[in-house]
């Protein structure tokens, strides 16, 4: 602080006496900008609420998850069943809560795994360059060219057939299959972002200084390059959480995702579609849950993009 005024004065700043307010930290600035976004804080509240309610499903849900009640099929909203019952008399609210668990679990797990793979590929390719870079990034580009949904469908089907043949495909394994497939086709965006950011960062002086100080490639990547590439990764991850919820729901809807009896918002819609002439309300709730959660993630992602942008105006 004592030596600073000289340099600061050259830039035209007033000398700040020691009583000046503490400089605002980077994260505090971002938080300030995030809060000012119109809908992102609301989105964050929605997500937190969904996570809590879905996480507490075993304790707060009024019925057992798969409890069948053939005497009250297609019940409308009643005090006993707030959102009614489905074609087997199962309580819709209960299943929505458990389905939320699965959807959020699948989406969060596969997003985290995608980030790990993407960061590894992008950082290694960007830092070591040469043949490694050529192979990794050409492969990334190739994967990016391929249309995702058609491939997701084929892969899910093949994996499920294979596992069914080993007589092991149950509800739990179907969750693993979908996490695996979503990860396999979901790491490329992060890889591209990290690669681009590492490419520009590795030429900077602080990296040169770290190399001169004898730091290993691994520690330069982990300590210097990645922390400086965090912002785009965080934004991509937030938007990825939403898109993975839609992808999981779409696969489950098409019968290639989460297998019954485990409920997911997607496979609840499949059930509802079969009975939509008789009871159209069943199709409303699961889709509304997907829509609201994805919308919340998109708002948060949009706000984070503005908030984490160091070039954005600080006002």
């Amino acid at each position: 602080m004592v030596e600073m005024p000289q340099a600061a004065n050259e830039c035209g700043y007033e000398y700040l006496p020691t009583s000046a307010p503490r400089p605002t930290g980077q994260w505090r600035l971002c938080w300030g900008r995030f809060r000012r976004h119109m809908l992102a804080p609301a989105g964050a509240v929605v997500i937190v609420a969904f996570v809590i309610v879905a996480g507490l499903a075993p304790w707060i849900s009024p019925y057992e998850r798969d409890q069948i009640d053939l005497l009250s099929m297609f019940a409308g909203p009643t005090p006993a069943h707030w959102l009614g019952t489905d074609e087997l008399g199962r309580d819709v609210l209960t299943r929505l809560l458990y389905a939320g668990q699965i959807s959020l679990l699948v989406s969060i797990t596969s997003t985290l795994l995608s980030i790990i793979v993407g960061v590894a590929v992008g950082a290694v390719a960007g830092y070591y360059r040469g043949a490694v870079e050529a192979i990794l990034m050409r492969f990334t580009d190739l994967m990016l060219t391929l249309p995702t949904l058609p491939l997701l469908l084929v892969f899910s089907k093949m994996l499920r057939d294979f596992l069914a043949l080993q007589q092991t495909l149950g509800s739990n394994l179907s969750i693993l299959v979908i996490v695996g497939v979503l990860t396999f086709f979901g790491w490329m965006t992060v890889a591209r972002l990290v690669y681009g950011s590492v490419l520009s960062l590795r030429e900077r002086e602080f990296v040169e200084a770290a190399i001169a100080a004898g730091a290993s490639g691994r520690s330069i990547i982990l300590r210097h390059l990645l922390p400086n590439s965090l912002a785009p990764i965080i934004v991509a991850a937030t938007l990825g959480l939403g898109s993975r919820i839609v992808a999981e729901a779409a696969l489950s809807f098409l019968g290639l995702g989460i297998t019954l009896p485990t409920p997911s918002w997607g496979n609840m819609l499949t059930g509802a579609q079969a009975y939509m002439w008789r009871n159209p309300w069943l199709a409303l709730y699961p889709g509304l849950c997907i829509f609201v959660v994805v919308l919340a993630f998109n708002f948060i992602g949009d706000a984070l993009r503005d908030a984490l942008d160091p070039h954005a105006k600080i006002s």
């Binding site: 729901a249 779409a250 819609l269 199709a283 997907i290 829509f291 919308l295 993630f297």
Partner: peptide
């Protein structure tokens, strides 16, 4: 944002209904 967040298969079902 609504358009981007709307799952297509659900929108389809709702429109049919």
């Amino acid at each position: 944002f609504f358009g981007m967040s709307m799952p297509t298969f659900w929108l389809g079902l709702m429109l049919v209904i």
